[in-house]
Nucleic acid binder design. Structure first.
Lengths: 159, 159
DNA sequence: TCCAATCTTGACAAAAAAGTAACGATTTGA
DNA sequence: TCAAATCGTTACTTTTTTGTCAAGATTGGA
């Protein structure tokens, strides 16, 4: 289970925009520089994010990108859903082996686990906004762990 | 964030073995048939799982694969760690863009989120054994949701 | 003994994901 | 008006992941 390049870099670009002062924007070369990626790659990512409605852009000499909504109103689950291309939804039809459909179609013992995991992740991400992950590592870490129940400790089992 | 093919099929093969009666085993062609994958692919997966110590094998006529430990003692987090090739551990060095190391090395605002997500998933998987996911979809689903706190509901926020 | 069934292993091929390039469209401002 | 700076879009290349193949090694049984 891992984060794709598109999710990683796409999110990082959005965080850069989230950190701007109101009214400011960033050009592709600026975003590329800030994230250590190529301008072409930044361009593709921003195209995706623009298409998905997270950012707006203006062209021409003073052009650039900026968030379409306040950073505090954009939750990470929405972003990952787009950048990750709805991984859960396509799961069963992605893993059909050499057949046309999964052999476990109809009754699958591991599907609840896969779906459940995605729900857990979705739940966690839905509690975090872009605004909350602008900052230093320690401040973001503190924020993350302060969210009640986001990573609960297992209570000792009664025997 | 998604499950890789290796994780998916590898886990499915293990579940097949977990469902066997004690003393029984499955050959590669049998596993391949049961999971709808090619024998060659099953071979590679079982090789990985054998190397990692999850299964044992015997060669020759009457050979096959069986679990190296009781299904009730094998937790899903161990399995995913091997099949997913330690995704978290390699995260930062995987996403360095066009540079040799990540621009956010040292202080990264999104690392706590990535690491935290992986912890949440790890935590959930560590509470489930192979034995628990042998069965029908509804029984496994019930098992999953009966684990206290595995997918907690967000409490309404006080305003 | 020797054949058939099985696992083992590394090299290779195909598919998918990631990243790049090229060219077009829009805007600003001289 | 037009050149420079910018975004927009699609096609292409590279890299990674996935899957296949082929030859070898081991075992059981006739």
């Amino acid at each position: 289970m891992k984060i794709s390049a598109q999710e990683e870099y796409g999110l990082r670009c959005l965080v850069q925009l989230a950190g701007l002062r109101p009214g400011d924007s960033l050009t592709l070369p600026q975003i590329a520089e800030l994230e250590g990626i190529s301008t072409a790659n930044a361009g593709k990512l921003m195209w995706l994010l623009n298409k998905a409605g997270f950012v707006l852009s203006t062209r021409g000499t003073k052009g650039g990108y900026f968030l379409a909504r306040p950073a505090g109103e954009i939750h990470l689950n929405e972003i990952i859903k787009v950048l990750g291309e709805e991984a859960v939804a396509k799961h069963c039809e992605s893993y059909t082996g050499v057949l046309d459909s999964c052999v476990h179609k109809g009754d699958c013992g591991i599907r609840p686990v896969i779906v459940g995991l995605h729900e857990i992740v979705e739940n966690a991400l839905s509690q975090i906004t872009l605004a909350q992950i602008v900052g230093t590592e320690s401040s973001v870490d503190a924020m993350f762990h302060s969210i009640k129940g986001i990573n609960r400790v297992i209570e000792p089992q009664r025997v």
